[in-house]
Design a protein around this nucleic acid. Structure first.
Length: 491
RNA sequence: GGCCCCAUGGUCAAGUGGACUAAGACACCGGCCUUUCACGCCGGUAACCCGGGUUCGAAUCCCGGUGGGGUCACCA
């Protein structure tokens, strides 16, 4: 059996959003599962909307998600180039071949005329369709247009009767009535660039793509492409139209819906492991109760048969939960690796941390990581471990610092910690328990003010984890500062 | 509007004619654990869009309706 070849073909007009990422993921999964080849191709035939930086942005996002491609721009491969604007000659040649075979014709209508025709059709309540006006131009008429210097676009001579059936791996047979489903659509623009429905077919064929896996929005394009395949004499690939990802208001994803770009999730502190895991679960399921799965496990389970047909609405809450799962269960080294930039951006950790500094960061992260959902939350929640200049939570101050005798209690705690020789979890806790017993107070009466004193917060890791992580020196200094602060509170 | 796709809790989703008194997860609500907050554990609320068929039997098959989505560019 021939090697399976799939491709992800984004157009560099913006950043990669989660819908595109999911399509890329399914292609990648299918390739990896079947020992196939995953091709990346850039569809940049729209010179108007092309954004220079977008191509590299998309590539780096894919890399970040660890969706690596076997052939593509930057990487090369036997079917290159992998950028459509560099394949113009190929499209021109194939279009010419089609023109000569009578499968296509020159259209001299201007975009303005066409827009007007559409408008008129719409007014009359008719379906806007190209009239076919230029299809039957005589040679003289054609020459006249050429003489006027009009650059023609190329239209395909589409069949106007019969049906076109698309064989789809997730939807089965889908048939389209040729009389009403499309008209003589343009395959080459007057500027010499191919349109999507043409370039896509030429590339998929010449790149040996065996399975076209893409979002459902392309399903109604498929009969058009199918006609191009036939007209050019290409064999048809397998098609699989995967369900779309919709915004929470059930509409198509757009920038209007807040964070939809993968990069935004990255900035908010989501891990690639979590994003990829969540995306895999949107429109696909392993068939059992598994949810938190690494890419390797997903690959082993993946199949187009188990891809669902209906669109899925994405739910940030579940993504956030998965993110939290990874944050607390991934090897600590990995969490430190991805978290470090967030600490550095806040100037909590130096740009080139020393070994002891890294050791400290690691201990802090390990103490805090089960309580937060994102890396932003992680850095925020542990900020006070890295600065002596942290504020005290206002509500906490009212609750714990204004009680009678707090200064005394903190002072006793400080004295107890000062006496501890081996600054461990067991010893520090033992010292504190003794204070509690001696003073005849509840544990909370000492523990809560101390947490506030040491971290400025009322929530967070277990108190003795905080104490041991900070170390004796910092603890004593922070308690001194808090005791002074408590005194000013009363005044 | 034409064409196409889809339809299980708020969301993801299992289910492929009898094991459905319909899994599981997120979210939500209780409780337990605990020095706080989380984590974890236990429990709860909540769904087969509607109407016709087919069948001994339908969430599952067929038809119609309704609803949602997509698409109808010299965009991809």
């Amino acid at each position: 059996m021939d090697t399976i070849r799939v491709r992800f073909a984004p157009s560099p007009t913006g950043s990669l959003h989660i819908g595109g990422a999911r399509t890329a993921l399914f292609n990648w999964l299918y390739a990896r599962k079947n020992s196939g080849v995953f091709v990346l191709r850039l569809e940049d035939t729209d010179t108007e909307r092309f954004i220079e930086a977008a191509a590299e942005g998309i590539r780096s996002t894919l890399r970040w998600l660890s969706l690596d491609w076997d052939e593509g721009p930057d990487k090369g491969g036997p079917f290159g180039p992998y950028v459509q604007s560099e394949r113009k000659a190929l499209y021109t040649a194939e279009a010419q071949r089609l023109l000569e075979a009578g499968g296509a014709y020159c259209c001299y209508c201007t975009p303005e005329e066409l827009a007007q025709q559409r408008e008129e059709a719409r007014k009359k309540g008719e379906v806007p369709r190209y009239s076919g006006r230029c299809r039957h131009l005589t040679e003289d008429e054609r020459q006249a247009k050429e003489a006027q210097g009009i650059r023609p676009a190329l239209r395909i001579a589409a069949p106007s009767e019969g049906t076109t059936v698309v064989e789809d791996l997730v939807r089965g047979e889908v048939s389209f009535d040729n009389r009403v489903s499309f008209d003589d659509y343009i395959i080459m623009k007057s500027n010499g660039m191919p349109t999507y429905n043409f370039a896509c077919v030429v590339d998929d064929h010449t790149m040996g793509i065996t399975h076209v896996i893409r979002a459902e929005e392309h399903l109604s394009n498929t009969p058009k492409q199918s006609i191009v395949y036939r007209a050019l004499g290409y064999p048809l690939p397998q098609f699989a139209h995967v369900p779309m990802i919709l915004a929470p208001d059930r509409s198509k994803l757009s920038k209007r819906h807040g964070a939809t770009a993968v990069e935004e999730f990255r900035e908010e502190g989501y891990l690639p492991e979590a994003i990829v895991n969540y995306l895999a679960l949107l429109g696909w399921s392993p068939g059992d109760e598994r949810e938190v799965m690494g890419l390797k496990e997903i690959v082993s389970m993946f199949s187009l048969d188990s891809v669902s047909k209906h669109a899925a609405i994405y739910d940030v809450k579940k993504l956030t939960w998965i993110n939290a799962q990874y944050l607390s269960n991934l090897p600590i080294e990995r969490v430190v690796e991805v978290a470090l930039p967030f600490y550095q951006a806040r100037n909590l950790v130096s740009d080139h941390p020393s070994t002891p500094e890294m050791g400290y960061v690691t201990r802090v992260i390990d103490a805090v990581r089960t309580r937060i959902h994102t890396l932003v939350e992680l850095a925020d929640a542990s900020a006070s471990f890295f600065t002596e200049d942290y504020p005290y939570d206002e509500k906490g101050v009212r609750k714990h610092f204004t009680k009678d005798g707090v200064a005394e209690i903190l002072a006793r705690g400080r004295a107890a910690l000062a006496r501890v020789e081996s600054f461990t979890l067991e010893e520090t806790e033992k010292a504190y328990r003794e204070v509690i017993e001696e003073m005849g107070i509840s544990g909370g009466a000492l523990i809560h003010p101390t947490r506030l004193a040491l971290s400025g917060r009322t929530v967070g890791p277990g108190l003795f984890d905080i104490i041991v992580t900070l170390g004796q020196g910092k603890c004593l200094a922070r308690l001194d500062r808090a005791i002074e602060f408590v005194k000013t509170c009363k005044a």
